[in-house]
């Protein structure tokens, strides 16, 4: 096979991995911040994509404006989601959290299906029809744009958590809510901000994936891949999650190209089981003490 095909597969794999990374980061942020693992995160991705679709159909705004507006709307959605669903669930048993977030996810999916029917649509992207050439090799610019966005988000989050006061407050709340409250941090606001951020990242994934895979109610199925990325990354490291997601995306794409679709679909689950059995704290995580 010519070198160009390998490079194209790599670009495609990295862009797929970037989407997984964004979903995984959103899950991880919310889980670390509030202790609620959000099984409706996939539907937040779908919701973001449909928001962008709605904006592009009703207004004549350019891609950039839609891009930013959608992320802002998603932030508000995240705040509402946190107030209505997450906060009552914060102290509930894990079973209740899983089932309630799943139920809300199904409701969102069903509402979107009723509103838009099954048709697959897309939003125009300035990158979708452009290809970047390196000598003989050409790569779709959307792939590069997706990968760039995921890396940029990771970098911004890292800066935010290390240097920004609000970011440090979020980390404090994740470590110990009571202590954080005693230090004068408004814990409830931090919860809202966490979910606003998580939902905005999910919506970003939705906008980015739309020109590649199209917008349809089932696109929330990417949730599972996000879980795998977060688990492989150890559920507590930004870089770990992104590296794991890239790995998963590249393995899936190459595996799918060489061994067929079955291999591609089984990879994620096999990796998940393997990592949970061999290294339960992820490839990059550190062991955590558990209170009995």
């Amino acid at each position: 096979m010519p070198l160009g095909v390998y490079v194209q597969l790599l670009a495609s794999g990295l862009s797929t991995g970037s989407i997984y990374a964004l979903v995984g980061l959103g899950l991880m942020l919310a889980f670390k911040g509030t202790g609620v693992l959000n099984f409706a995160q996939g539907e937040l991705v779908t919701l973001g994509a449909y928001t962008a679709l709605f904006l592009s159909l009703t207004t004549s705004l350019p891609y950039w404006a839609i891009f930013i507006l959608t992320i802002l709307v998603a932030g508000v959605v995240g705040i509402v989601f946190e107030r209505l669903l997450v906060r009552p669930l914060m102290r509930a048993p894990e079973f209740t959290v899983v089932v309630a977030t799943l139920a809300v996810g199904l409701m969102i999916k069903d509402a979107l299906r009723i509103a838009w029917q099954e048709s697959v649509s897309s939003i125009p992207s300035p990158f979708a029809d452009v290809s970047v050439r390196f000598g003989d090799i050409s790569i779709n610019a959307q792939y590069l744009w997706v990968t760039f966005c995921a890396l940029a988000i990771m970098g911004m989050l890292a800066l935010f958590f290390n240097n920004n006061l609000a970011g440090k407050a979020m980390r404090a709340v994740a470590q110990n809510q009571t202590a954080a409250r005693l230090m004068g941090i408004r814990v409830n606001r931090v919860f809202s901000a966490t979910f606003a951020l998580s939902s905005a990242i999910a919506a970003l994934a939705g906008i980015l994936i739309a020109p590649i895979h199209g917008i349809e109610p089932e696109m929330g199925n990417v949730l599972m891949k996000g879980f795998v990325a977060a688990v492989l990354g150890g559920f507590n490291s930004l870089v770990g999650c992104v590296i794991a997601a890239f790995m998963l995306g590249v393995i899936e794409t190459f595996g799918g190209a060489f061994f067929g679709g079955l291999f591609k679909d089984v990879t994620a689950f096999a990796l998940l089981i393997l990592v949970l059995l061999v290294r339960p704290n992820g490839l990059f995580g550190s062991a955590e003490a558990r209170r009995v």
Binding site: F31, L37, F39, E94, V97, V98, N221, M224, F227, V228, V231, D265, V266, A268, F269, L272, I273, L276, L277, P280
Partner: peptide, 18 residues
């Protein structure tokens, strides 16, 4: 056996998709 709570939910969800 080695998993509980959320992790078990994730693995069973994975099994469903598989």
């Amino acid at each position: 056996l080695r998993l509980r709570g959320f992790y078990l939910a994730v693995v069973t969800l994975g099994f469903l998709e598989l």
